[in-house]
Amino acid sequence: MQIDLDITDERWATLGLEAICEKAALAVLERLEIEADECELSVLGCGDARIKELNADFREKDKATNVLSWPAEERGAEIEGALPETPEPDIFGVIELGDIAISFDTCAREAEEAGKSLTDHATHLMVHGVLHLLGFDHIREADASLMEGIETEILGKMGIKDPYSEY
């Protein structure tokens, strides 16, 4: 797998964002039986100021958020609660997943508020972001249930507690 990592907030480098991204993406791809060697994605490790700009530009929401995803192509399932179509390599043998931006400030604040480790929360957000790149979403109820179930399963195999339960 190729990950193009752009760290504009050095706190991400200190935390080890590259390893977090790789571990999370590989876990998602393995769970969905997608050949990781064929996949490419880009990740921006930034702070709240930059993610707020991106959120305003792309989602018309003038506030910071934890993670944003831009799939290389629309892969969502038409039928609510169904699995998205598995991506296929292009003529060059590459599966372009898309781009993810993650904010250190929001991630750290949410982790602290929830009593979670920053690494575990960042891993969860990366799993969540990669699933979005693969067509998973949480707008419709059945889609959210499917996505959250897969996230919980993946994170559990990584030794991370269910992020959707109280603990």
Rank of each mutant, 00 (worst) to 15 (best):
M1S: 13
Q2N: 15
Q2R: 15
I3M: 08
L5N: 03
I7E: 15
D9Q: 11
D9C: 03
E10L: 05
E10I: 01
L17H: 06
C21G: 12
K23L: 08
K23H: 12
A24N: 10
L26Y: 06
L26E: 15
E30H: 04
R31T: 07
R31K: 06
R31D: 09
L32T: 07
E33F: 04
D37L: 11
C39H: 05
E40I: 03
S42I: 00
L44A: 14
C46A: 09
A49Y: 13
I51R: 07
I51P: 01
K52G: 13
N55M: 08
A56V: 06
A56E: 11
F58Y: 15
R59D: 12
R59A: 14
R59M: 13
R59S: 12
E60K: 13
E60N: 13
D62N: 13
K63M: 09
K63W: 07
L68M: 15
S69R: 05
S69P: 06
S69E: 03
W70M: 09
W70E: 02
E73I: 02
G76I: 03
A77K: 00
A77Q: 01
L83A: 02
L83Y: 05
P84R: 02
P87S: 01
P89D: 07
P89G: 05
F92C: 04
G93T: 08
G93E: 05
E96I: 01
L97V: 02
G98S: 01
D99Q: 04
D99P: 00
I100T: 05
I100M: 13
A101K: 06
F104T: 09
F104Y: 13
A108M: 07
A108N: 09
E112T: 06
E112V: 04
E113C: 10
S117Y: 10
S117W: 08
S117M: 09
L118G: 08
L118E: 13
L118S: 09
H121G: 07
A122S: 11
L125Q: 05
M126T: 10
V127T: 06
V127D: 00
V127S: 02
G129F: 04
V130G: 03
L131G: 13
L131A: 08
L134Q: 10
H138Q: 04
H138S: 03
E141V: 09
E141H: 08
A142C: 00
A142D: 07
L146N: 00
L146H: 03
E148Q: 11
I150F: 04
E151F: 05
T152W: 09
E153N: 04
E153P: 00
E153F: 07
I154E: 02
L155K: 03
G156Q: 09
G156L: 12
M158E: 14
M158R: 15
M158K: 14
G159S: 07
G159V: 05
G159R: 11
G159Q: 08
Y164A: 09
